[in-house]
Computed example of a mutant assay.
Amino acid sequence: MRFKNVFSIIGPAMIGPSSSHTAGAVRIGRFARQLLGSAPTEAAISFYGSFAETYSGHGTDLAIVGGILDYRTDDERIRHSLRDAAEQGVRVVFFTGVLPGTHPNTVKITLTSQDGRHTEVMGASIGGGTIVIRSIDGFEVKSSGELPTLVISHADRQGVLAGITAMFSRENVNIGYIITDRKGRTAEALTVVEADSSVPPELMEAIGSLEHVSRVAYIDLTR
Rank of each mutant, 00 (worst) to 15 (best):
A124N: 10
G37V: 05
F94W: 11
I9M: 13
A44V: 12
S197P: 13
L62A: 02
I178P: 12
T165D: 08
Y218E: 04
T130R: 14
V216Y: 02
H103M: 12
S135D: 04
N105Y: 15
E194V: 02
M1Y: 12
L161W: 04
S198V: 09
G59W: 03
N105K: 13
F47Y: 12
N174F: 03
N172F: 14
H154I: 01
G24L: 08
E188T: 01
R117V: 01
E120T: 15
F168L: 03
K4D: 15
E120V: 13
V92K: 08
S19L: 01
L147V: 01
R117S: 13
A44T: 12
A124I: 07
H154K: 03
V199L: 10
A39V: 07
A23T: 03
S143K: 03
A124E: 14
L36T: 06
V151T: 01
S135Q: 11
G97C: 05
E202K: 12
E53I: 05
I15H: 02
V6F: 12
F3T: 09
L82Q: 10
R157H: 09
R134G: 14
E53Y: 10
L203C: 07
T149W: 02
I219R: 06
G59A: 02
G138N: 05
S125Y: 05
N174L: 09
I175Y: 03
T186A: 14
I136A: 05
V65H: 04
F168K: 02
T222H: 11
N174P: 08
Y71T: 00
H21W: 07
D115I: 06
F94Y: 14
A23Y: 09
R27H: 02
A162N: 11
G138E: 02
T180D: 06
G138F: 03
I131Q: 04
I45T: 03
H58N: 14
E146R: 07
I9E: 12
E205V: 04
A25Q: 14
Y71D: 04
S20N: 11
E120F: 05
G66M: 00
S198A: 13
V90I: 15
D74V: 00
D181A: 12
A166S: 14
L150H: 02
G163C: 03
D75L: 00
T165K: 01
L161G: 07
S125F: 02
G159N: 02
N172S: 14
Y55C: 07
T222M: 12
H118W: 10
D156R: 01
I9K: 13
S50M: 15
T186M: 15
H58A: 13
I152C: 03
Y48G: 10
G101I: 06
R2C: 08
A86E: 15
H154Y: 00
T60L: 06
D220V: 02
I9P: 13
I64R: 00
I28A: 11
